[in-house]
Each structure stands twice: as C-alpha cells, then as structure tokens.
C-alpha cells in the first residue's frame, strides 16, 4: 500500500511539473494582458509536434528539438500578440473569442500537416530508476520534472531579479505604472506572450515521447489548465504552481483508485466549487476579470 502511494505520488509529481509550465504561462498572459488564451492547449500541441518533426522524423537531438519547440511556439505567441491581442486590447471577450478562432486554425493545420493519426515518438532512453519492486520512475519523466524545476526557477529569477521582470509584474498589477518605468505595454505584452507560449510549447515538447501526440490533444490540456488556474487564482503564479501540484495529486489518486474519467469529473467539480465559493481562487487575490 505504501508502495502504491509512493508510486502515485511520483506520477502526480510528473503531471504537476508539466501542468505547472502550462498553467504558469496561461496566468502570465492573463495577468499582463487581461485575456484568457483558449489556444493555450494548442500551443502545447505545437510544441509536441515540433518534437515529432525534428526528433522523431529528422532524427535531430532531443534537446535541440525541445529548445526549438520552445522558441518556435514562443514566436507563434508573439504573432498572436501582434495579430490578435494587441488590436483587441480593450476587448477582453473579443481576445478570448479570437483565441478560440486561433485554436481551430492550429488544429486544422496540425491535421493538414500530420493527419489525425496519433504520432509515436520514440523514448529518449529506456532507463528506469527503481526505488523498490513496485516504485519506479522512468528516466524521461524525470527529465520533465527536472526541466520544469529549472524553467520555473529561471522564470522566478527573471521576474524578481531583472528590470523586465519587475515591469512585467508591475504591469500585471497596473499597466500605467509599468509604462511610467519606461517600458511600454507592447513590450511587456510581447515578453509575457513569448514566455507564456514558450512554456506551453516546451511542456508539449518535453512530454511528446510520453503521450500520444495528435491534433486534438490540446483539449484536455486546456481543460486541466483552466482547473489549475481557477483553483490557484487567475492572477497568481505561485497559486498556479501550488494548484498544479494539488490538482495532480487529486487527479492521479482518483485515476489510480477509480478511473480517469471520474478523475476529470472530480477535477471539474472542484473548479466549479471554487468558482462558486471563492471566484478569486484559493490562493489568489488579484481579480481583473
């Protein structure tokens, strides 16, 4: 029993690590631009396809494919900022609707480029760390956990130690104040969008060998991300990480002891409950909506 618990916790840790990357990006975009990016799950998918194309098909090194995925999806994010969110800056609902439109476009492009079939990405390594007979952690999963910790630490350092990071956090509170520091809203929006999208992309790229890559994979990602950011509080980066860990634990345990669909239902109900009782989230204070 203890072993089953330990194994489930390890699984949850893995899920929490990539969901943190996705949710933190979503929160960052929402905080700075005030818009909910419905296409965030599809950015995750794009990252996964970058690995399919570069690593599985072209046989380039995995680390290169992942980095390319981060940059590529980040650049897609810049495009979204310029084409969609900037013209709709004073229209948050419009921005949301436009991102839904973009979601459809990305899905359709993925179908055209790769077909609807599931892509199989060969694992980077077959190695498994064995803690005991029934508790083990596959090496690729450990990579995801380590990468998430490194990236989130880097983000934290960027946000707290650099001038742009300060500006970003300031503009999440008050765009005017950030503008006074000589950093324009366009600049902070670009940075937030690049980082936010890039994090989704790198999460998709890192997990590509571990999941079934297909054009519709973004749906469950965005649903989970919504749960995480609502529970964590839509304005709070720390809340998103905490909620990602908490949600992954709940979800993984319910999946292990019941089944995945029930786990999804529990997760969504949890989110509804938070929305009813405390719409600003369990950890959040900011309320821009």
């Amino acid at each position: 029993m203890v072993e089953l618990l330990a194994q489930t916790c390890l699984n949850a840790l893995y899920a929490a690590s990539y969901m943190s990357l996705v949710a933190v990006g979503l929160v960052l975009i929402f905080g700075v631009m005030g818009v909910i990016n419905f296409a965030h799950g599809e950015l995750f998918m794009l990252g996964a396809y970058a690995v399919v194309a570069l690593y599985a098909d072209l046989q380039l090194p995995f680390l290169f494919a992942v980095s390319a995925g981060l940059v590529f999806v980040g650049v897609v994010g810049l495009g979204m900022e310029r084409a969609l969110f900037r013209p709709l800056r004073n229209n948050p609902l419009g921005g949301l609707v436009a991102s839904i439109g973009f979601l459809m476009i990305l899905q359709a492009l993925a179908v055209m480029g790769f077909g609807v079939r599931m892509e199989h990405v060969p694992p980077v390594t077959q190695e498994v760390i064995t803690f005991s007979e029934k508790v083990h952690l596959a090496m690729p999963r450990l990579f995801v956990i380590i990468a998430a910790v490194i990236l989130l630490t880097a983000l934290w350092a960027f946000l707290t130690k650099t001038r742009f990071g300060w500006a970003l956090r300031a503009s999440a509170q008050d765009p005017e104040a950030a503008a006074l520091q000589g950093i324009s809203i366009n600049q902070t929006s670009r940075i937030a969008m690049f980082i936010g999208a890039g994090l989704a992309g790198v999460a998709g790229a890192l997990t590509a060998p571990l999941v079934s890559v297909n054009p519709h994979m973004g749906h469950s990602v965005i649903v989970t991300a919504f749960i995480v950011i609502i529970v964590g509080g839509v304005g709070s980066l720390e809340g998103a990480v905490v909620a990602a860990v908490a949600y992954s634990l709940v979800h993984t345990f319910v999946t292990t002891f019941y089944d995945g669909v029930i786990a999804d239902i529990v997760g969504l109900s949890l989110m509804l409950l938070v929305l009813i009782v405390k719409p600003t989230g369990l950890f959040g204070t900011a309320d821009r909506a």
């Binding site: 969609l84 013209p87 709709l88 229209n91 419009g94 609707v97 436009a98 839904i100 439109g101 973009f102 979601l103 459809m104 476009i105 899905q107 359709a108 492009l109 055209m112």
Partner: peptide, 13 residues
C-alpha cells in the same frame, strides 16, 4: 475548422 477559425478572428477584428 480552419475557415471558421479565420472567420471568427476576422469578424472580431
């Protein structure tokens, strides 16, 4: 889906 997405964006913009 592609066309609908594009139309959605264009009409919002």
């Amino acid at each position: 889906p592609f066309i609908y997405g594009l139309l959605l964006i264009c009409s919002v913009l």
